[in-house]
Amino acid sequence: MTDKKVALVTGASRGIGRAIAEALVEAGFFVIGTATSDNGAQAIGQALGDNGAGRVLNVADSDSVTETIKAINEEFGAPLVLVNNAGITRDNIMLRMKEDEWADVINTNLNSLYRVSKACLKGMTKARWGRIINISSVVGTMGNAGQANYAAAKGGVEGFTRALARELGSRNITVNAVAPGFIQTDMTDALPDAQRETLLKEIPLGRLGQPQEIASAVSWLASDGGGYVTGTTLHVNGGMFTG
């Protein structure tokens, strides 16, 4: 058990999730970061030191979610901040997209929110305080060729966010989404140079974002100062989408 509020960040071994875990430690939370592999979870544990822990969690698997959240509750206390960050891509044009490419993305990126949020809600309801922050994507609003599965999942994430915000407002639990644009991570490092050039022309700020710039948005939503914001999607994208 810890005296600090417990924050749970899924998919925290790399990229945006890792930056979020670090920012929440900075903000004074005890942070549990999850990864799908033992090595990933250990690395998170080492990086967070006394301010957190790493755990193995597969958000695509109901049993894994139930067991892991239960263990976290018993060992550290109920997570009152949940950052649903874990996600995958399986890009393909629709005419070539296999059913498992569709289903895997929906399961990991959207169905996971049902599982993990539900598992954390009892604790937040009891505490009369909670923050659920779902990491969406600008693609959920704009769409992107070759990402029908990913865009569908992220659009779903934003609808889920609005519905849950209405459901839980009376218990002082806020539910928001943060929608990153193109952020410099392993996911975007894989883009071909030509595509990167084209992309940068579409971004008024003329650069990719940094993971820390997403993490600071998440950290603000988790803070007391962000307490009157709920049901919204905060776009952090260098101006590439201006709604």
């Binding site: 009892k122 309801t125 009891k126 459901e167 839980l168 009376s170 218990r171």
Partner: peptide, 11 residues
Amino acid sequence: ADSLDTVELVM
């Protein structure tokens, strides 16, 4: 009670 209240009651 509303539906959330009943869940909390059970908890």
